[in-house]
Simulated assay, not measured.
Amino acid sequence: MESPILLFRAEGGIDREAEGHYRDLSGIGNTAGPHTHDFFEFFLITSGSVCHWINGKKEQLDEGSLVFMRPQDVHFYEKLPGKDFRLINLSYYSKTVMELFAYLGDGFPQDAFLFAPYPASVRLSQQDKLLLQRRMEKLYRIPQHDKRWFRTELRSLLSEVYVSHMMPNVVAKPDERPPWFVQLCLQIKNPACFHEGIAAMLSLSGKSHAHLCRVFQQWEQLTPLQYLNRVKLQYAENLLLCSDWSVLDISLEAGFHNLGYFYKSFKALYGHTPLQYRRIHQSAF
């Protein structure tokens, strides 16, 4: 016998003045069975993995999965053998979300979000997942009586998730770059590859240096070396935010053997020295 589908109503769990609700759920035992609701919500898998049934379709969600649920969606979670998970969920009155859609204007692909067979979802990078998780967890530290502050933070997060993560996924344009070039850009992000430098680019692509220069200029407006340095700096940025390694160790791990050059390059891209950047972003959380 199938489980009945529960209907959760905004009035029963979302503070009207705050316009939203924060929940941190650890373990499959803290989740509900098949259900729908009359409000929007998005959730982030912060650790582990789980089977997610959504509108009759089964999918595995892993750490970094971000899903935005609509009122009409029916879903529930099912434990995977030997695994469990944690998620953070933010719920919003439908009125709040629709006001955001209206503000974004006619160019916003509203129908793609509202009427697609399945809700919009995306798998975040470890860095993006960590930053969003910290932003979401910050809500828990807001005093419960300060509903105006809570509402502002909730709206800010709603806008951020849609504009930064969901819209690019829904309205993504076909990648017109040559397939070999797309593959090269993915492969060169592997530390084993970018440590080898331009030689790895030539070996992986099978192209001449002159041809690489023309293609990188066409699609990235960078030389191969400039692109390579940007990849290494992005890798270093992630280590600054996600580890307690020293700047020297991060510089070496990212493939910069001249500390002065690393400092100069990092500041040129991010506007701060590595230590300043780490202090600014860690103090934000």
Rank of each mutant, 00 (worst) to 15 (best):
H209M: 14
N238S: 14
Y93G: 07
D62L: 00
L248K: 00
L202G: 11
P71I: 07
A284W: 15
V67L: 06
G27Q: 13
H21V: 02
A268R: 12
E253R: 13
F42E: 00
E160W: 07
Q183D: 15
R141A: 09
L139S: 02
G82E: 14
R148C: 05
A200I: 09
R23P: 00
V247I: 08
F39V: 04
T36C: 10
T31R: 10
V231H: 06
L241R: 07
L158S: 00
L124H: 04
L80G: 04
R134Y: 11
L184V: 01
V67S: 03
G105Y: 12
D146N: 07
S164V: 04
S3I: 10
L80Y: 09
Q60E: 15
L186Y: 13
A199N: 12
N30T: 01
H209I: 09
V182S: 15
K147P: 06
L157M: 05
E59I: 11
F43R: 04
H257A: 03
M136Q: 13
E63L: 07
L104A: 03
R23C: 08
W219F: 15
F194G: 06
Y118D: 06
A192K: 06
C185Y: 00
E17C: 02
F266I: 05
E220N: 12
I198V: 14
L114E: 13
R123K: 09
R177I: 07
R134M: 07
G27N: 10
T31A: 10
Y77V: 11
E253I: 00
Y77P: 00
L154N: 03
L6K: 11
V97D: 08
I188V: 13
A172R: 14
L124P: 02
G260T: 12
F194H: 14
I45V: 15
L252T: 05
V97A: 11
E253M: 09
R278L: 14
I250P: 00
E63N: 02
Y270R: 06
L212H: 05
Y270C: 09
F285D: 05
H165N: 02
E19I: 01
Y261M: 07
W53S: 01
A112G: 08
L184W: 13
A199S: 11
G260R: 05
C242E: 08
D106M: 15
Q133V: 03
H75F: 14
T96I: 06
S65M: 08
S159K: 11
Q234W: 07
P81Q: 05
F85L: 08
E176F: 06
G33K: 08
G197Q: 12
H195V: 00
D128M: 01
E41V: 04
L202N: 13
S26A: 15
A32H: 15
D62G: 03
S203H: 14
R279C: 03
M69P: 00
S203C: 03
Y227V: 09
W180K: 08
S208A: 09
D249S: 05
K189S: 12
L130S: 10
E253W: 03
R141K: 13
Q72V: 02
L202E: 15
Y261P: 00
F285I: 04
G105T: 11
L130R: 08
Q217L: 04
T46D: 07
Y77Q: 13
K173D: 03
P117R: 13
Q133Y: 04
D73K: 10
P4R: 07
Q234T: 06
T46W: 03
